[in-house]
Design a protein around this nucleic acid. Structure first.
Length: 722
DNA sequence: AGCTTTCAACTTTTT
DNA sequence: GTTGAAAGCT
């Protein structure tokens, strides 16, 4: 969903503004489309008696369909008449889930919306495993490992210091798990020696996870699927609980998610899958379009409904998008159209090199922004996005924007939860929940340093694995004194006692106002602030780390509930949770989305991260052969790969509402020398008319400004949109 | 030999 | 801007 919808809506309400007329799309984006649904949307919402696949083209109002369908399911009728708790809406990101709930609130009220099960696939998996995972031998407080933990375990399991190699294992193992293979099956399927090694590492990895009572992200999908498949009782329980399941971004599901879904909906098959095969861009991480293909085969009664009206982009932009994507083989036929007018032609911008490209992009942004001032509402910085294939392309744009004093944000940078200091604290939180979580134990006991070194820990680890207990359990074992000196044992016991005490307090401290002091006390006890300043020469950096820590504390406190001062001064009483309760959910949440302040800035984003978003003005950067479509040295360009790259281009084009610039580099910097840049084949595939492509931009802008000014003056006030 | 410095390269990403 | 590798220095 767009970050602009709300403000644009306000803009429409403040009617009579020339900007509404000048850019018809402003009046009617997918976000604030008319109150009624169009025929196809209505059909999708009203189809309640069986499985439904909604092929939601870009900007066709898919979130509207999902939320309206939820509302419909709450009303009476066959297939409907459900309680909110019987409806599940599954997304891929926490952000999407949060937005979905907000939209649902607006439609059915907060009381009902809060009872809906709106969550990510992984959060659903956690819920299922916490409730019923014991049937798989998993204790309810199992730990969830993040990818760093996994990497660490793999390095150890494979006895390597080669991080690159471990990362390749991690990658391979994850793909195997996504396909539902265990280590034994993987070993059988292995194609070469590398894969055979990976499979053997995987076997040891599996053992460790079991010993740690820990699961990785892939397990959060595959274990629930396994459980539901094997255990009739659990399966019935969940199938009865969830009477209708809606899935967002269905094209991004992997094989395991398909199985999980199938088991969740059961024979009744009451589900609504919403997706777009043309926007499938995550094949490289296991998503498979087979899931779209299989749906009508597995569910012959499946109702397929394409949403083809686009409420986002002008016809010129949509035509370019359609032309590109039409070259891909089609799973389902659909052609997007819009009635938002022809709009400004898609512009191809030739650039000498990367620097020049950045300059031109900045100039373009300033030009468009300046061009609308005066007569109407000026374009905001947040109306612009620069999209690119690879993260490293952002840097040069950052420089140029900084130089021009234009505020910006880079989306998809390092996440708050990836920062070392936050991971340190998360390790403690995880250890509170599950003391057998050895990776968390190791991190917590060594951060900050407390005189327990690798010798002591090595001995402890050896002891633990010998007796098949966790390191924490080994802490207090009597026979430990055989291998360790009294001083080391004293330190270990001190740590163990502190953790036990902290756990006890965490269990009984509830609500934001009590949890925060507890956390502050804890940080003081372990000397964390001092640790940050000790470990960092740069004082400013240490200070910023400490600020992150404080953000983290506030964030946890807020989640522990009690009286919350919500936005707008309204106070809201929520259920109080103990620190331990909050700690249980931490691993799953990775973005601190609540940190605001970053409004009205230009967005820099990868094409992948831009999916689902929209901006009035979009610049696609570096649309060259080799970059988009991306070509790697050692992998050949298969048809499937090219098709996914083409979909990426399609996603990029369809982010734009009003204007779209496609940049081509004439020369690319490769190391120190320049190499010739070849325009991407996708440029030609857009089939833009020659005349509109290469017109002198300054002439064009002049013409446009004149046109806008004339229209702005002649437009009658408050006239409804044609 | 082990350390530092310089130089170049750099898919896409969520949970 | 960061990381990894290779060259150069002590």
């Amino acid at each position: 969903m767009s970050a602009h919808g709300g403000r644009r809506g306000a803009c429409t309400i403040l009617a009579g503004r020339p900007v509404v007329r000048r850019f018809p799309a402003f009046a009617q984006s997918a976000m604030n489309a008319p109150a009624s649904l169009n025929a196809a949307q209505m059909e999708a919402v009203q189809h309640l008696t069986g499985p439904c696949l909604v092929l939601a083209g870009a900007g066709s109002g898919k979130t509207r369909v999902i939320t309206h369908k939820i509302a419909r399911l709450l009303l009476s009728g066959p297939g409907a008449d459900l309680a909110p708790s019987q409806i599940a809406a599954i997304t891929f990101t926490n952000k999407a889930a949060a937005e979905m709930r907000e939209r649902a609130k607006a439609l059915i009220g907060a009381r009902s919306a809060n009872k809906l099960l709106i969550c990510t696939f992984h959060a659903l998996g956690v819920k299922l495993l916490r409730e019923d995972g014991e049937r798989l031998g998993l204790k309810p407080q199992f730990s969830i490992l993040d990818s760093d933990d996994v990497l660490g375990i793999l390095r150890e399991a494979g006895a390597t210091s080669d991080a690159q190699l471990a990362r390749r294992w991690q990658w391979t193992i994850s793909l195997w798990k996504n396909q539902g293979l265990n280590s034994a099956q993987a070993e059988g399927a292995a194609q070469n020696d590398d894969e055979r090694v990976a499979a053997r590492v995987m076997a040891r990895y599996e053992e460790r996870l079991a010993a740690y009572q820990a699961v990785d992200f892939d397990d959060l999908i595959s274990l629930p699927a396994k459980l539901l498949e094997r255990d009739l009782e659990t399966r019935s329980k969940w199938q009865n609980q969830l009477r209708h399941v809606l899935v967002d971004e269905y094209q991004d599901t992997n094989a395991q998610q398909y199985d999980l879904l199938k088991l969740l909906v059961g024979e009744r098959a009451m589900f609504t899958a919403v997706g777009d095969d043309d926007q499938s861009i995550y094949g490289w991480r296991g998503a498979t379009l087979d899931n779209l293909k299989r749906l009508p085969q597995d569910y012959p009664q499946l109702k397929v409904i394409p949403l083809e009206q686009n409420y986002r982009s002008t016809s010129a932009i949509l035509r370019a998008a359609n032309n590109v994507i039409s070259l891909n083989p089609k799973l389902y036929q659909k052609t997007l159209w819009s009635d938002l007018g022809e709009g400004e032609p898609v512009r191809v911008v030739d650039c000498d090199n990367e620097e020049h490209e950045a300059e031109r992009a900045v100039a373009r942004i300033q030009g468009i922004r300046g061009g609308t001032t005066g007569s109407g509402a000026p374009a905001e910085w947040s109306d612009f996005a620069i999209l690119y294939r690879a993260n490293h392309q952002a840097r040069i744009f950052e420089q140029a924007l900084r130089k021009a004093n234009i505020p910006y944000k880079v989306s998809g940078g390092q996440s708050f939860f990836d920062r070392a200091e936050i991971k340190d604290l998360c390790a403690w939180m995880r250890l509170l929940v599950n003391q057998d979580d050895d990776p968390a134990f190791l991190r917590a006991i060594t951060t900050p340093k407390r005189g327990i070194g690798h010798t002591t820990l090595g001995a402890l680890g050896e002891f633990a694995s010998k007796w098949k207990v966790s390191m924490f359990e080994a802490l207090f074992a009597d026979s430990l004194s055989a291998t360790l000196n009294a001083r080391a044992i004293g330190s270990l016991h001190e740590f163990g006692r502190y953790l036990n005490d902290f756990e006890h307090r965490a269990r009984h401290t509830m609500g934001a106002e009590d949890v925060k002091p507890l956390l502050m006390e804890w940080l003081k006890d372990i000397g964390y602030e001092q640790h940050l300043y000790d470990g960092e020469d740069n004082e400013k950096l240490a200070a910023s780390r400490w600020t992150n820590v404080m953000d983290f504390v506030d964030w946890i406190a807020k989640r522990s509930g009690g009286v919350i001062d919500a936005t707008g001064g309204m106070t809201e009483e929520t259920e109080k949770k103990s620190l331990l309760d909050v700690a249980q959910t931490i691993s799953l949440i990775t973005s601190l989305a609540e940190r605001g302040g970053d409004t009205n800035v230009v967005t820099l984003s990868t094409l992948h991260a831009a999916k689902g978003l929209e901006w009035p003005h979009v610049v696609l950067a570096g649309v060259n052969e080799g970059l988009l479509p991306f070509k790697s040295e050692d992998e050949e360009m298969t048809a499937a790969r090219l098709e996914e790259e083409r979909r990426l281009m399609y996603v990029g084009i369809t982010r734009a509402r009003l204007t779209l610039a496609v940049n081509v580099l004439k020369r690319r910097k490769r190391g120190r020398e320049f190499v010739a840049g070849i325009p991407s084949r996708f440029i030609g595939e857009m089939k833009l008319e020659e005349s509109t492509m290469r017109e002198d931009p300054r002439e064009k802008l002049k013409k446009l400004r004149a046109e806008f000014a004339a229209r702005a003056q002649s437009a009658p006030k408050d006239a409804p949109q044609a």
